[in-house]
Amino acid sequence: MLRYTFLFYLFITDKISASEEKGGMPQLNPESFSSQIFWLILLFITLFLINHYLFLPKIKNIRRKRDETIQSYLDEAKKLNDSFNSLVEKMNKEFEEVKNEQNALIKKTFDENKKVFDKKILEINNEFEDKKNKLNSDIDENKKMITNELPKLCVDLSDKLYEKIMGEKIKGSVSDFKKIIGDDK
């Protein structure tokens, strides 16, 4: 629409400029003053009224709406941010609580285990001690038995060896054997 208005204006002005021209400086010709002032006042007031009552309220309105929309988005974003922050805070608090609970549980379990472990070690030590004592007594017993039986076994063995070699039976005494080996005390 603007283009056609332009073309129409150029067409009209071309026709007007083609008419006769006078000399001098036309701005100083007072003949046209009243007409120019009249049309200026009329058209300026018209444009002012159109702008003031028609176009500018529209612009103000849309700008106000835009500001309100932006503000509402900002408020919503702030609300979301606040709720997010409170959630994070709550989560951190819960996390801390759970952490403390777990630490207490771990400590309790560790203490209980330590107690059981110590008891077991004590039991094993006692058992070990008992077994050690029993073994020692067995060894002593065996040693005593071997000490008592060995001379007799040695005498019997030497009698049998003598008989095999010499073909004659003899009967050695344990006390003689002990004398020979110097253990007759």
């Binding site: 208005t5 204006y9 002005t13 007007i16 046209s32 007409s35 049309w39």
Partner: peptide, 15 residues
Amino acid sequence: DISFTNSSLAMIMTV
């Protein structure tokens, strides 16, 4: 004189 002139036309076109 409030004649409609080329100046008035230009003003109208401005509006």
